[in-house]
Write a protein that binds this DNA or RNA. Structure first.
Length: 276
DNA sequence: CCAGCCCCCTGTCGGC
DNA sequence: TGCCGACAGGGGGCTG
């Protein structure tokens, strides 16, 4: 579910709610959600810590609990809900971790239970394989060019790997490739200089716009106040099978690429050497 | 290196 | 109506 723009939106919402608060209690209802350390130790070590800040790295939320860090990956359906003091809303069978705070309660909810929480002294091992942030200074056209040139994989699964650039998922990869006019099955090393430049610009534009729109809500995504995002109406191809391409009017196609649903325009994103 | 499969889970939707 | 498979925004692991 949540890709970089959704996680960024969640972090921005949580920051004013949680900064400076102390964790007063921890209840883990579905232990497999806790990646490390063991769930009982996770709870014990979290209690009493002060939340000094909240940052984002790729699709991870990073809570600063100096000297520890709490990393959270929401995977497909993870959500945070903030419950103000005195409120009883939002607790249900999908709430798997409950953090009592000095003011209010933070609930971790996850319908499919794929999300993971990590309480660590050093975040680096968990984050070690991530490429640069798409809007950060380390993500340059030169970096993208060199990364693509070394790889023969199809461009879409390569961008989903998180190693070339971090934070894109199925929606924003499809959107970026459409904006750049590149077919999802193009081999990465075959993109020429101008195609690479278009892809570079497209990734940054798509991500920046989705953040400005506070994320895309197709089914499950909600912010900590249970509010949906606004970016779904801005999507060009994702979820628009058979609808007219916003650039040329041709019906948008939906296929499967490496077992992920993939949307593209056959006219704006041609595959050289094939009929479609 | 990479494609293709499995797994982790629950809910929803479309077809028969 | 009811059942049943396919599919859903992610990612780790394994095989060939």
């Amino acid at each position: 579910m949540p890709e970089l723009p959704e996680v960024e939106t969640i972090v921005r919402r949580l920051r004013p709610l949680l900064s400076g608060q102390r964790v007063t209690s921890v209840a883990v209802r579905w232990p497999r959600i806790i990646d490390r350390p063991a769930p009982d130790r996770f709870a014990r070590e979290l209690v009493g810590r002060a939340i000094q800040g909240i940052e984002r790295r790729s699709k991870f939320l990073v809570f600063d609990l100096a000297p520890l860090s709490l990393l959270v990956h929401l995977r497909m359906t993870g959500q945070f809900r903030y419950r103000p003091p005195g409120s009883t809303l939002a607790d249900d069978r999908h709430v798997h971790v409950v953090l009592g705070l000095s003011q209010g309660t933070l609930l971790y909810r996850d319908l499919r239970k794929f999300g993971r929480l990590y309480l660590v002294a050093d975040p680096a091992p968990v984050l070690s394989n991530l490429g640069p942030e798409p809007l950060g200074n380390a993500f340059t056209l030169n970096h993208l060019q060199k990364a693509l040139w070394r790889r023969r994989r199809a461009i879409k699964p390569l961008l989903m790997e998180q190693t070339v650039v971090a934070g894109l998922g199925n929606i924003y990869v499809d959107e970026s490739l459409w904006l750049a006019g590149i077919h999802p099955l193009r081999r990465a090393h075959t993109l020429d200089r101008s195609e690479t430049a278009r892809l570079y610009g497209a990734i940054r534009q798509v991500v920046a716009q989705a953040i400005a729109n506070m994320g895309t809500t197709l089914r499950d995504y909600r912010d900590p106040h249970n509010r949906p995002g606004n970016n779904q109406t801005a999507l060009a191809v994702y979820g628009r099978r058979d609808a007219p391409c916003r650039r040329c009017g041709q019906p948008v196609l939906k296929t499967t690429v490496n077992s992920r649903g993939t949307h593209y325009c056959p006219r704006c994103q041609p595959l050289p050497g094939a009929t479609s």
